[in-house]
Design a binder for these strands. Sequence first.
DNA 1: ATTTAACCGAGACGGTACGTCCCGTCTTTAC
DNA 2: GTAAAGACGGGACGTACCGTCTCGGTTAAAT
Lengths: 186, 186, 186, 186
Amino acid sequence: MNRPGRPAGPADDTAAVVLTAALELLLTEGAAALTPQRLHTVTGVSRTTVYRHWPSPYAFVSALVDVAPVRPGEPAGDPANDLHAEIDLLCDRLRDRPVGGFLHALVAAVAVDPAVAELRRRYVADLLHPFRTILRAAGASEPEAADGAAVIASPLLVEALLLDTDADRGRAHRSADLILTGLVPA
Amino acid sequence: MNRPGRPAGPADDTAAVVLTAALELLLTEGAAALTPQRLHTVTGVSRTTVYRHWPSPYAFVSALVDVAPVRPGEPAGDPANDLHAEIDLLCDRLRDRPVGGFLHALVAAVAVDPAVAELRRRYVADLLHPFRTILRAAGASEPEAADGAAVIASPLLVEALLLDTDADRGRAHRSADLILTGLVPA
Amino acid sequence: MNRPGRPAGPADDTAAVVLTAALELLLTEGAAALTPQRLHTVTGVSRTTVYRHWPSPYAFVSALVDVAPVRPGEPAGDPANDLHAEIDLLCDRLRDRPVGGFLHALVAAVAVDPAVAELRRRYVADLLHPFRTILRAAGASEPEAADGAAVIASPLLVEALLLDTDADRGRAHRSADLILTGLVPA
Amino acid sequence: MNRPGRPAGPADDTAAVVLTAALELLLTEGAAALTPQRLHTVTGVSRTTVYRHWPSPYAFVSALVDVAPVRPGEPAGDPANDLHAEIDLLCDRLRDRPVGGFLHALVAAVAVDPAVAELRRRYVADLLHPFRTILRAAGASEPEAADGAAVIASPLLVEALLLDTDADRGRAHRSADLILTGLVPA
DNA sequence: ATTTAACCGAGACGGTACGTCCCGTCTTTAC
DNA sequence: GTAAAGACGGGACGTACCGTCTCGGTTAAAT
């Protein structure tokens, strides 16, 4: 039995307009700008409406994470090639903002709402995951794969997030090779 | 020729009281709590005085970096031992907040005042520096040392800052060994 | 087509509470006390709300002038009687503050916001106007009426505003008689 | 026995510089501008020094009243001529600021410091006084003289202070004639 | 020449009010 | 029931001035 009246939740276009603007704001001005007030002035959607549907910072970032998920590169089969491809993919993403900016924003958002920390953890884990998968496919044990992923990807994240340097692909590729050769002792 | 009048800058005790409380706040409640208002209510020093001497977030973080600098462990001579000691030191610091908390705070402060980014870069560079020095002493070339420092320390930073995990010392020590053996071709 | 949403402007009771208190403050403590801060502590209405609706001193005084206008006595027909009645009315008002206090306040408010000068001029002109009207009715020419009004009322204003003396009704009545007799040449 | 040491009170030039600037400020920007802070920025004399010698608004206005006293016109002997001359003198003064501005300022200063009210009263009384003297010399009784002074001078004050109009000399002269003829019935 | 008292400037400090901004909740109206 | 417009209280922000104070260095009289 259907309840009468208008279905709950934001109208589709309202949600689209607001979340698009939110992502835009997040990437250009950082997490601090992601307030109902700002969204109202930017989108014209009324402050009241924004509050109704996304009552907390968490709700926003959470919605955005769903809108802009991290899609891993698709494996071609050869672990070595896949690994190098994944490294390049991550470097590009960190440089071109979609991921780098989002990560920056997530880190900053935690300062405002601690609950976001969980989203940050998941987001970073998602970034590291492809490396682990590929290393497993290459014959590494689970802990070996985790270590390898950390060794390859972490420096890239540190450079992009903490040092504001371009990620050093060369080093990452060398590390990858080193790890792969360590796996096939023959 | 001396100018007349009272010497400029905060009286010694004022500076001490405020900066001590600031560090305390930073480590216990995070960077978001480090506001003039909070410092006033916590220390009793008047809001006006706080603004007078530390008008910007940058001024604060900068003063704190000077108050609580990162002191590297003192090298004992044997590169291998030194490297492992330095790893343990960093892990301890990241766990016990003095460094981990401060780093968190620096990252958050950048969201408010971009000028802090420069302090963050320097702070992180200071964290990585000891590793580079030791690796150079162990016979690595300059780029090799930089790479090695990144490979060893970055995962620790990522775990502490982005994943909220305890740093995985084991992996760090293994990486260190791997790198050291790579250096001595014998 | 009507716009949706709540009608603009302060809710009726808010306006009433604030303006009542404002008038009260004005008359008891003088114009210097008429600040948003004072009104907040006195009425309990939040400082923000006060600023929202009366952003400037001018807005306040202006609203008060509308709330407490100067109502002339109603003419009974006989110019001589009317004139003397009007004199007594003005003297009473100057003594009992409603007008005297308000005038004081207007003068003081000009020091803060020059735009109030216009309100002051109008207010004083409104005070002098009844005298002119009555003198015209008694047969005076327009300039004669203006002069007469000035001669009769000005000393009262000076005494109340500048000398802090009770207005000297006797002199005012004598001046009035003198002027009236000057008008009837017989 | 004289005490040794430097004599108390401000050095002559300090007092001169500050009071000159104070008068200037008072006339150009009104009483609200007459603060230690402003005087410091204008004269370069340190805030501390200003506070030392003129601790209250009252002290300032009081010092200024002594610096710029109201000097009555000198009587020539003939009451009629003297009276008209005095009227012109007052009108000129009200127009040319020295007196008009000062009076404005005095009125405003009362709002800040009620003690100034006494100075205002005296100042206004000093303005009215010449008229009374001359009328007495013309044969008026004391109350008659007071009334006459009020009738002649008050409208001028009201016009200058409350209506921002140029004082109407014509009316004042006519009033004077009227009063003088009333005195010599013969 | 030395006292000695006061001047003077620079600035710290606590306090209060200012005017602004954003937050989060609520109420009123229109669709 | 959604949406818009806006009132409202609350809190922090950063600024400005106030009045008091402490600290140095200077100056002018009286001894």
